[in-house]
Design a protein around this nucleic acid. Structure first.
Lengths: 345, 345
DNA sequence: CCGCTTTTCGGAAACGTTTTAGTATGGCAG
DNA sequence: CTGCCATACTAAAACGTTTCCGAAAAGCGG
């Protein structure tokens, strides 16, 4: 005899009343409610989650699925830990807790999610690193689990998603470089298999064409999104017959490797070559010269994610009457010294 | 009527037999077992976790508590994501899943853990960022939840913990610098409030004294463990009246800031000042000059963590007959160019 | 053919909670 | 005084699963 039963016996009261008192139900005398709360506090009673969720089919837990693949570990640079701050601040207001579900790298993300969903351990999900076709989305729709995807996708009709404003960033970077007279602008990006690689390069191409500059496939350098990739990107760029005067990096981390390769070749970023990075992480400003890149608040993104998710959950939707089902998250230009090189002056 | 009942009805078999078939119990005919498994696969049946854990008081889930404080986000640099790889590889062999519990930065970690434990959502815990006195440890001992702490602590008698070999690293760094003739060796570390700061500086002091070098408090520069902190450390070091010829950094990230400050002062690391970092992250080797630091495998640490934890869980202890209750995790020297500066030659 | 063990299965209890339905009690209008 | 309603409580059912216990069937030695 444990749990609420013990508490009820200790108070010489029925367990039903204890439960209603703890859960703030109306039909319980205020005096008894106080007694119950005091006793619960004293005995350190907290409702067993299994029994509770078995009965009411809810867990008050939100899952955030992340991948712990080698790639992610090296690149994401605490992206998720940063986002959780904003997530928590919203979720805690509704007494919801956040659980991170790291998908093992040797397991299919779809299978992993299926297992977690079947377990009924979460009320809703946030999935990240969404692919262009992503079975996880169909699964979540089929099982009717509220969710929001971090990353756009074409799977499963129109679901709710949030993604970074790659188009805006690419346009801003290209505009900025073109206004300084650059016509041959290289870009270092991951392969088209990665959603980001596809979208970003596509946006880059469109931005160029808007300026009447022909898209040159040779200027698209496909590398890993890491320092190593940045080094390699520098290497490949230097081997081009017609050298670019500017380069856009999809990951700021690449800049560290790129700088090193440029240094070996005696090229100074910002003086001989304009460099613009993408997502700012706390490294860029300490490089020499400091990196021009795009800034965003991970915390704010987390807040937006949480609010969008709650809007899709029937029990909470009333507080978050969102119309938009998909959000493009803007980034702000954070100017540095690395793109000072200009062809116009 | 859902779940196992439906499955049983579909097979025209009792639910008890279905359950036993799915859980691999011996007293069930192999033919019926096959039928059950096939039907479960076909109908996509997975046992509801709430019902299951309510009955058997177990969840098959291991919790990893991390802090999502600003400090952690900026410094830990995907430490946890890296460790999870190793954790998962061991846990999945026992059909255990890993859950990351990010403690909100505005909540007391102790209260957060209490809530999570009361929920009965995990069978065992791994807690990180252990403090020298840490109420979480008393809580876990009191509630009899198997756990292992990442970081040493004096709380709660002798519990199981794993920590990095700060003594070994400090000794190795000091030895190496002293062998090159350095006598005034500075150290950049966080304050004594942080466990790491206390232990590392203490080990540094002992190493110096072993070489007969007097400990000079002025050479201990207390800064944040970030690029910013590294920059500041450089700044403070340059203001010392009697300048050191070498410096040890507790976080490799500091090197980026330090390098920048040194550059501003016209000082070249490895030529005018010997620099040794601590934990290698994939940045150091791309700095110029490359950083001498200490390397470890996050994955292996995760494996060790998982095996140590399983050894403390009665249901799994048989496979992991560990004697040691505490482990010092070694790091390996990764030589670079930054400590080339020598006073002996 | 009998008694015994082994194999295989069905029925039912149990896990801890919430919630529904029902029951006293008291107040109040008629 | 009677009927009615609001209040505050109790009792019991339900959530989905696992596991204990007993029983039927089957095998087997005598």
């Amino acid at each position: 005899m444990k749990g609420i039963r013990q508490l009820a016996k200790h108070l010489d009261i029925s367990i039903g009343t204890v439960s209603r008192a703890l859960n703030g139900r109306p039909d319980v005398n205020e005096d008894t409610r106080k007694r119950v709360l005091a006793a619960a506090e004293e005995l350190g009673y907290v409702a067993n989650q299994s029994g509770r969720s078995l009965r009411q089919g809810t867990t008050n837990v939100i899952g955030l699925m992340i991948e712990s693949s080698k790639e992610t570990v090296e690149n994401s640079d605490n992206f998720f830990l940063g986002v959780t701050g904003g997530l928590q601040s919203v979720l805690s207001r509704h007494k919801l807790d956040l659980l991170m579900l790291p998908c093992p790298n040797d397991e299919d993300p779809h299978e992993y999610l299926k297992r977690m969903v079947a377990r009924r351990i979460v009320d809703a999900m946030i999935i990240s690193a969404t692919q262009r076709v992503d079975k996880r989305i169909d699964l979540l729709i089929k099982t009717k689990i509220p969710f929001v995807a971090l990353g756009r996708s074409t799977s499963g009709g129109n679901h709710t998603w949030i993604d970074l404003d790659f188009e805006g960033v690419a346009a801003c970077a290209v505009d900025r470089l073109v206004s300084k007279g650059h016509r041959r602008i290289a870009i270092a990006a991951p392969s088209n298999d990665i959603n980001l690689g596809y979208i970003f390069v596509d946006a880059y191409r469109k931005s160029l064409e808007r300026h009447g500059i022909a898209f040159d496939p040779a200027l698209v350098i496909r590398v890993k999104s890491s320092e190593q990739g940045g080094y390699q990107a520098g290497h490949e760029m230097l081997r081009l017959e017609s050298k670019p005067s500017a380069i856009i990096l999809i990951y700021e981390l690449m800049a560290i490797g790129l700088y090193r390769r440029l240094n070996e070749a005696g090229i100074v970023p910002g003086r001989d070559l304009a460099v613009i990075g993408f997502r700012e992480e706390p490294r860029g400003k300490f490089l020499q010269p400091s990196l021009t890149c795009f800034r965003m608040s991970l915390r704010d993104l987390g807040v937006e994610l949480a609010e969008t998710l709650l809007a899709t959950m029937p029990a909470y939707a009333e507080h978050y009457p969102k119309g938009a089902r998909s959000t493009i998250w803007p980034l702000e230009l954070a100017p540095g010294e690395s793109d000072a090189f200009s062809l116009t002056s």
